[in-house]
Every structure is written in C-alpha cells, then in structure tokens.
C-alpha cells in the first residue's frame, strides 16, 4: 500500500473542496477502498474521512400518500438490514444488505460505498502490475476475461472491451424499488434515479465514453448524500441471491422483486436482476406483461424468459441466463406470497 495523507472532513464543504484535487479519495467504511489501495486499483495521495459528517440517518417522512424512506450514504449495511422502517417499507433492501457480506463487514461497510464498489472480475482484482490485459485498470490493454475465465461475467450490456458485472446486492434492491440517489458537488445538489446511476459498457460507448471505465454518472468532486425510496401501498418484496455457498459469497445471479397482488392476480410488479450486467437489469417488458397474471410459476417463467431474450452469454456463462430466469421467477413468486 502506497503512503498517503489522512484528514477528516468536519463539514460537507470541506469534503467537496478536498475532492477538487483529483488525487484525493473519500473514505467511509473503507472495506472496499483498502483493498483497492492494496491491489493498486487506486493510489490516492490523500484520504478524506467523512465520518464526522454523519450522513448515516434512516428515516421515513410522511409524504402526501405513502412514506418516503430516506437512508444516509454512510448508513451501514448492518444498520439498514435490521432497521424496523426498512424491514417494514423495503424488506428487499434489508434482506439484500444482510445477504451482502459477513456480519463483520456489514458493521463497517456503508450503503454508498457498497453501491460504488467495482466488479469482482479476477482479472481486474489482481495486484499491480497486472500480467494480463484489463481495460478497466489500464485502458487499451485488452480484456483477458472476454475469452478467459468468464463464468461470473456479464450476459447483458457488455462489449468486447469489458465484460464486467456490478456485484452489489443492495443496488439491485434499490433499482427494484425505483430509489433516487442524491448527490452534492461543485455544481450543487442533484438527484437521479438509481436505475440510471451505473452504465453498461454498451451505454458508455453510446454516450461516446470509454466502455470499461465510465461506470457511473458520479461527476468529479461529487459525493453521494442519501438514497430515497417512495414506498408503494400494498407491495411486498423479496430478494433471491444465488451463490456457490449458503452465506458470505458474491452472487452468481440475484433478483429483487416487489409485487402487489389483488384478488389472486398480480396488480403491479417490479423485478431487477443483479450480477448479469454492469448495472441492475430491470425486466420492463415482463413487468407490464405480468399485470393480470396469477401467481403461476409456469406463466411467470414464460414472461421472464421472453424478457431475457436479448441476453448474450459469453463462452462459459450460458448457465447464468437460465439461473437468472429461475431467480427472477422465484423472487416474483416469493414477493407475491405464493406458497
């Protein structure tokens, strides 16, 4: 780990001013950043600790109709996972936080830090100097995963320059619940849908940006302040995480669903897949087609399969498409209350 300086930001203005310097990084829990520093993924000259800013509140405001759940950027995964308000109004987010890491890590890791984590691609997460190409680490060096060990890589949205997935569990739940993320920076405060916060590699190229490195819409100098979820009446949610062991492992595929059932039929459905692309993947086509359907496994599976028709598995991860279909089906049935 390279040497760096350390300071604490006592006010938000201090933090944003510090970020004006490109070689400064923020640290919250540090559970992701410390490993970046060890591997050489980042080598900032200075860390600014935002612990004194707080930003860890969890509250539900009484809106005109339904409560809006607001979660501070520094709220820990442990605090969110066991918070009564989140369990009541966004169970899928609470469950995703508890499934995201070990109890020890959940006590340190923050929601914003978790959302900003990068891919678990083994070619990306290796110690410098890399013995292979990785466009995300060294633009122009190639993508060793494209034709290498790519079992866990993307099946949607990838390009030949990068096949990485976004591994966060809470992010999938936030996308399912149509959360907004509030940012503050040199140009003031702004909010945007979490669904559009990350880019797939294809979306980056379409915007004229680098496929491998233009992962988020976070601008230079910006800080995540909070996440907000407008809760919806009558919806119940569920998180399904498929992994190689029962606990404490990254997802091969995950699915977050929120469903409202009336008279035995689906009245509203939202479904997002995780670890299939570089952003959570909402199945918009399936969501509208699901309305009016009974909680029937075969019917739901058929609609989900159709919505994933554009999946493009790599040489070794064709199984992830089948796994995603099954995970989405199970999440929808569980959220809908099917027995």
């Amino acid at each position: 780990m390279e040497d760096f300086a350390y300071a604490r930001a006592r006010e938000m203005a201090e933090a944003t001013a510090a970020l004006a310097s490109r070689d400064t990084a923020l640290i919250a829990g540090g559970t992701e950043l410390l490993n970046w520093l060890r591997l050489g993924i980042a080598a900032p000259a200075r860390l600014v600790d935002i612990e004194p800013l707080g930003l860890d509140g969890i509250s539900a405001s009484a809106g005109p109709d339904r409560p809006v759940l607001t979660i501070g950027a520094r709220a820990t995964l442990a605090a969110i996972g066991e918070h009564p308000l989140v369990r009541t109004h966004g169970a899928v987010l609470a469950d995703a936080c508890l499934a995201a890491a070990s109890a020890q890590i959940r006590n340190r890791a923050t929601l914003a830090g978790n959302v900003l984590q990068t891919t678990r691609c083994p070619y990306f997460r290796a110690e410098s100097p890399l013995p292979w190409g990785c466009n995300k680490r060294h633009p122009g060096s190639g993508c060793a995963a494209l034709r290498g060990v790519n079992e866990r890589m993307a099946i949607l949205g990838w390009t030949e320059d990068c096949v990485a997935t976004q591994p966060s569990d809470p992010l999938v739940a936030l996308a399912c619940l149509d959360a907004t993320v509030t940012l503050t920076g040199p140009d003031g405060e702004r909010s945007l849908p979490i669904r559009t916060f990350h880019r797939t590699q294809q979306e980056a190229v379409a915007e004229g940006l680098d496929a491998a490195t233009a992962e988020t819409r976070l601008r230079a100098g910006e800080i995540i302040v909070s996440f907000a979820i407008a809760t919806r009446a009558g919806e119940r949610s569920a998180y399904v995480k498929v992994r190689e062991r029962a606990s404490y492992e990254y997802a091969l595929v995950s699915a977050a669903a929120s469903v409202r059932v009336e008279d035995g039929a689906i009245a509203a459905a939202r479904i997002a897949l995780g670890s299939v692309a570089q952003r959570p993947w909402r199945l918009d086509a399936a969501e509208s087609a699901l309305v009016g359907q009974r909680l029937d496994r075969v019917a739901i599976r058929t609609l989900v399969t159709r919505a994933l028709g554009d999946a493009r598995p790599l040489s070794r991860n064709g199984f992830k498409k089948a796994m995603a279909i099954n995970a989405a089906t199970r999440a929808l049935l569980t959220a809908g209350g099917a027995t």
Binding site: Y6, I27, G29, G30, T31, L34, N35, D49, E51, A78, S102, A103, Q104, I105, N107, R108
Partner: peptide, 19 residues
C-alpha cells in the same frame, strides 16, 4: 482478524488505525 470496535465486530484488516 476480527476485533470489537466500540463493541461491534469488525475486520481489523479492513480498518485503518487512524479511523
């Protein structure tokens, strides 16, 4: 490397001493 910080279990390898 699990230790308690303010009574909460954490990985000491993922925590800076300055924190």
């Amino acid at each position: 490397c699990t230790v308690l910080v303010e009574g909460q279990r954490m990985n000491a390898c993922l925590t800076l001493a300055v924190q």
